[in-house]
Simulated scan of single mutants.
Amino acid sequence: MTDDKHRQEGFNWLIKFYEKMMPEVEICIGEGRCKSDLFSKAKAINHAAKQATRNIYVIADSDIFYDPNLITEAIDLLKEHPWVIPYHRIHYLSKNSTKKLVETDPAWPISINVDAHTPNKKKKGGINIVTRTCFETINGFDERFCGWGGEDEAFVHAMNAVFGKYVRLDKDIYHLWHSRGKSASGNPYYQDNKLLHARYRSARKSKEATMKLVNEQNRL
């Protein structure tokens, strides 16, 4: 749960979207806090993973939605690839489009024309699809990341180093508008996160060095 009205409205709509468009999926919602009671994305994802009973994880942010068929295509790719980033473009909906959308019944294709900004940048977070075995081998997301910043990139480096590079689908996903809140650079632990991310980046070409890094968490 969140105190942000816009985030909560978007999240409520997304849960209905999953329940209606993908009734076969197991929805696991994670929560997590770290130092100074900041939100911890890493802890939230790991908390959700502990609830899961199946062998394929769709790790999706709480403000992202997409064509349900995207999941089927991505899961098929797991037969030959270690993990999947199932999109190429993120369309960031405007505030007005998001407001209109969350007032509609969830459907695909979406029932309104939306105004969206689409940066020409291949991001790696938002939604990742991995097997339970791969996720557990690298201890999931590193919970030493506190607040926003660095956790997604570290996960990418760890997965690539240990299992091989992801494959990417040429698909679109959509991001609901919400107020920005505190940015990563406004996080009091931002520098700590940067240093930890730099360690993952330095280790990214070595499976042994990466596994040593992820296993440090077990000794904390």
Rank of each mutant, 00 (worst) to 15 (best):
P106E: 07
P106A: 12
P106H: 09
W108Y: 15
W108G: 05
W108T: 06
P109W: 09
P109S: 07
I110F: 15
S111L: 08
S111D: 12
I112V: 09
N113M: 11
N113F: 02
V114C: 12
V114W: 09
A116G: 00
A116P: 01
A116D: 05
A116K: 01
H117N: 04
T118Q: 01
T118V: 00
P119H: 00
P119R: 00
P119D: 01
K121Q: 13
K122R: 15
K122L: 15
K122E: 11
K124H: 13
G125I: 04
G125Q: 04
G125R: 06
G126C: 04
G126E: 08
I127K: 02
I127P: 05
N128E: 07
I129W: 05
V130G: 03
T131Y: 04
R132N: 06
T133A: 13
T133V: 10
E136P: 04
T137G: 01
T137Q: 11
I138D: 03
I138A: 03
N139V: 04
N139R: 15
N139C: 13
G140L: 07
G140P: 06
G140F: 07
E143P: 02
E143C: 10
E143H: 08
R144Y: 08
R144V: 10
F145Y: 15
F145I: 10
G147L: 10
G147E: 02
W148D: 02
G149L: 10
G150I: 08
E151I: 09
E151Y: 10
D152N: 12
D152A: 04
V156G: 01
H157P: 03
H157D: 14
H157A: 13
A158H: 06
A158E: 06
M159N: 06
